[in-house]
Computed example of a mutant assay.
Amino acid sequence: MSFRALNVLFFPLFILVLTQCSILKSDENTSTGISSPLDPFEQNAELGRGINLGNIFEAPEEGSWGLYMQEEYFKLISSAGFESVRIPVRWSAHTNDSAPFKIDTEFLNRVEWAVDEALKNDLMVIINVHHYDEIFQDPAGEHAKFIAIWEQLSEHFQNKPSGLLFELLNEPHDNLTANLWNQLLPETLEIVRANNPYRTVVIGAAEWGGIPGLMKLQIPEDDNLIITVHYYEPFQFTHQGAEWVPGSDAWLGTTWDGTDSEVDEIKNHFDQIYTWAAQRNVPVNIGEFGAYRRADNSSRVRWTTQVVHYAITHDMSFHYWEFASGFGIYNPNTGQWNVELTNALINTE
Rank of each mutant, 00 (worst) to 15 (best):
N7Y: 12
L9M: 12
L9A: 09
F10H: 04
L13N: 04
F14W: 09
L24G: 11
S26Y: 15
E28N: 07
E28R: 05
T30I: 14
G33E: 12
L38H: 04
E42Q: 13
Q43T: 12
R49M: 02
R49Q: 07
G54V: 06
G54T: 06
P60F: 10
E61N: 09
G66Y: 02
M69N: 07
Y73N: 07
A80I: 02
G81L: 04
V85P: 02
R86Y: 08
R90Q: 08
S92P: 05
F101S: 05
K102Q: 13
I103N: 04
D104A: 11
T105M: 07
L108Q: 10
R110E: 15
D116F: 01
L123I: 03
V125I: 11
N128D: 15
D133W: 08
D138S: 14
A140R: 11
E142M: 14
A144N: 13
E151F: 01
E155W: 09
H156V: 02
F157D: 02
Q158C: 13
S162F: 06
G163I: 10
L165R: 07
F166T: 05
E167F: 01
E167H: 01
N170H: 10
E171A: 15
H173Q: 10
H173P: 00
D174Q: 13
N179E: 15
L180E: 12
L185Y: 03
L189Q: 01
E190R: 14
I191C: 05
V192P: 02
A194W: 03
N195R: 08
V202Y: 08
V202F: 06
V202Q: 08
I203R: 11
A205V: 09
E207K: 08
L214R: 05
L214I: 13
Q218H: 11
P220N: 04
P220H: 05
P220I: 03
T228Y: 00
T238P: 14
H239N: 14
Q240H: 07
E243R: 01
E243T: 06
E243F: 08
P246A: 12
G247R: 05
S261R: 10
E262Y: 07
V263K: 12
D264M: 08
K267E: 12
K267W: 02
F270K: 13
F270V: 12
Y274N: 15
T275M: 03
R280P: 00
V282S: 09
I286R: 04
Y292K: 00
N297E: 13
N297I: 03
S298K: 15
S298R: 14
R302I: 14
R302D: 06
W303M: 09
Q306I: 13
V308Q: 09
H309N: 15
I312H: 05
T313N: 15
H314Q: 14
H314A: 05
D315N: 15
S317A: 14
Y320L: 07
W321E: 00
F323W: 11
G328Q: 09
I329L: 04
P332E: 02
Q336E: 14
W337F: 11
N338P: 03
L341M: 12
T342N: 06
N347E: 09
T348H: 02
